[in-house]
Design a protein around this nucleic acid. Structure first.
Lengths: 193, 193
DNA sequence: GACAATACCGACTGTCGGTATGTATTATCG
DNA sequence: CGATAATACATACCGACAGTCGGTATTGTC
């Protein structure tokens, strides 16, 4: 039929994608493991064979989401010619990606609450936040912006973008709002210079 | 013995303060209503007589916290002579107040997850976020900063401060980190000009 | 081909949010 | 002042759900 490794990867992937869909749609607290297992075509026993707890499953799902966003950001950024537009376009890409409601609920709303801020931040650092600090460091080394503590600036910018994404995703916000936000954000970035 | 109104207010206050302490310490999801009720010296029946659900109790607690922070910010800000330092010192006060771990867990971590971002933002708007938009509007009207969309700028700044507060509250962060953050934040504020 | 490991199932348990019912105390009103 | 209503709780209970455990079937190993 199939090798164990294939089997394992297949069920695990099915559970992760199913869980991701349901977590994104209803929120972590309002989705039961029984529901996830059934929707993935297995039982709760199988789920617990792959993930030792509900939180661990969520953590995996969050990591998937983070990596996806990180890739999108990196892809958009590395197409840019110089470090400065690398930063600006990376930020724009992050804002675009994380405005998706599905991404938000998992990455920005439930993430910190379920895993705790420390753990959440560690995951964030592995994907998109790392790109931000790297970009800032590059700009400092290149002399584009003055030497300054990178960490605080990165945290401030990261928080600003997270909140902006949540706001933009609210119904009633238009493309004009998006443009205005990007304008204000660009001004913030320029303040680093 | 006591009038009904007194009795009511007393038990409600006891439940709110107890719940606040426990929510702050362990997080919303890890505190049972039975625990809260017992710690407040009543039963779960009493709790449900005052609050129709766990989420409603949390909402009340969050409102209390928000108002407290809002008052601290306003108090610090209105002591300032001009609108600009009003803004800067208000931001500093917010950062100080929301760095308290007890405040954080309720206001910044669990709040959006439990109530949903919409509802959370509505409460935020009633207390501290309102002060921010008002300050920006005043500065625009006074001509200190150019006319620009207030909402996006306010959201970006609010998010930046929230995240910075969470970061600063992590163990291992010093007064120097706080100063560096405040410096970077001030630079951001100056970018509005 | 036997033994071991793995993937998964299904029934069970404890905890917890929420409800329903009962009771004592205070307010209201004729 | 006495009866009725309303309020402030307590207690017992239900359903849902996260997590556990023993068992089974399939695959890998020697």
């Amino acid at each position: 039929m199939a090798t164990k490794r294939e089997q394992r990867e297949q069920t695990s992937a099915a559970l992760r994608t199913t869980a991701r869909r349901l977590f994104a749609e209803h929120g972590y607290a309002h989705v039961g493991l029984e529901t996830i297992a059934q929707a993935a075509g297995v039982t709760k026993g199988a789920l617990y064979h792959h993930f030792s707890s509900k939180a661990v499953l969520f953590r995996q799902v969050l990591a998937d989401v983070q990596n996806e966003v990180g890739e999108q950001v990196q892809h958009a950024a590395e197409a840019q010619p110089d470090p400065w537009t690398y930063l600006v376009e990376g930020c724009r890409a992050f804002l675009t990606a994380s405005t998706h409601p599905d991404i938000q609920r998992i990455m920005l709303i439930d993430g910190p609450s379920v895993l705790g801020w420390n753990d959440w931040r560690a995951l964030d650092e592995q994907s998109s936040a790392r790109l931000l600090t790297e970009a800032l460091t590059t700009l400092i080394d290149a002399g584009t912006i003055p030497r300054q503590p990178v960490e605080p600036a990165a945290r401030l910018l990261s928080g600003a973008m997270n909140e902006a994404a949540l706001w933009l995703a609210q119904s009633g916000n238009t493309d004009a709002d998006r443009d205005a936000t990007m304008t204000a954000l660009t001004r913030m970035l320029t303040s680093l210079k």
